[in-house]
Amino acid sequence: MRERRTVQEARRAREFEAFLAGAGGRLLGTATLLTAETAEDNPRARRLLTHALAHTYACWDRLRGEDPYNHARECLAVRFARGTWHRYGVLPFGRARARPAGPLAVLSAQHRLVVVLRLHEGVAEEQVAALLGLPADRIHLIVDRATTVLLHPPRGPAPARVSAKAATS
Rank of each mutant, 00 (worst) to 15 (best):
82 R>W: 02
94 G>P: 11
59 C>W: 09
80 F>H: 11
24 G>E: 04
81 A>L: 09
79 R>A: 12
59 C>S: 13
96 A>L: 13
30 T>G: 11
60 W>P: 08
98 A>R: 15
61 D>E: 15
35 T>P: 00
69 Y>C: 01
77 A>G: 01
84 T>D: 12
40 E>D: 15
70 N>E: 13
89 G>K: 11
73 R>Q: 11
70 N>G: 06
70 N>S: 13
80 F>K: 06
38 T>E: 15
62 R>D: 15
72 A>V: 03
92 P>G: 07
71 H>M: 03
53 L>E: 08
101 A>V: 08
48 L>G: 05
63 L>T: 07
91 L>N: 14
67 D>I: 01
77 A>R: 06
68 P>F: 10
61 D>F: 00
66 E>M: 06
44 R>I: 06
65 G>C: 05
91 L>T: 06
49 L>T: 04
56 T>H: 06
68 P>S: 10
35 T>Q: 01
63 L>M: 12
42 N>K: 03
100 P>G: 08
44 R>F: 07
64 R>W: 05
70 N>V: 09
92 P>H: 04
27 L>I: 06
59 C>Q: 15
85 W>A: 10
28 L>Q: 08
49 L>A: 07
47 R>K: 13
42 N>L: 03
83 G>D: 14
81 A>P: 00
101 A>W: 00
48 L>K: 03
63 L>Y: 07
65 G>D: 10
84 T>A: 11
64 R>N: 14
81 A>E: 14
101 A>G: 14
27 L>M: 11
47 R>Q: 13
58 A>F: 09
68 P>Q: 12
26 R>I: 02
67 D>R: 13
40 E>M: 09
18 A>H: 08
31 A>Y: 06
58 A>Y: 12
62 R>W: 09
78 V>C: 01
85 W>E: 14
55 H>P: 00
73 R>S: 06
74 E>M: 04
75 C>S: 12
56 T>S: 11
48 L>C: 05
39 A>T: 08
56 T>C: 10
59 C>D: 14
26 R>Q: 12
55 H>K: 15
99 R>E: 14
73 R>N: 02
95 R>E: 12
22 G>A: 13
20 L>R: 15
80 F>E: 09
94 G>T: 08
102 G>H: 02
94 G>K: 11
80 F>C: 04
102 G>D: 05
43 P>F: 04
69 Y>T: 07
53 L>W: 08
63 L>I: 07
47 R>N: 08
101 A>N: 02
85 W>T: 11
34 L>C: 05
31 A>R: 04
70 N>I: 03
102 G>V: 09
55 H>I: 01
89 G>P: 09
68 P>D: 10
60 W>K: 08
53 L>K: 10
65 G>Y: 04
28 L>G: 01
37 E>I: 08
61 D>R: 13
86 H>C: 00
83 G>Y: 00
95 R>S: 05
64 R>I: 02
99 R>L: 12
86 H>Q: 13
77 A>F: 09
89 G>V: 03
93 F>N: 13
25 G>V: 09
48 L>T: 07
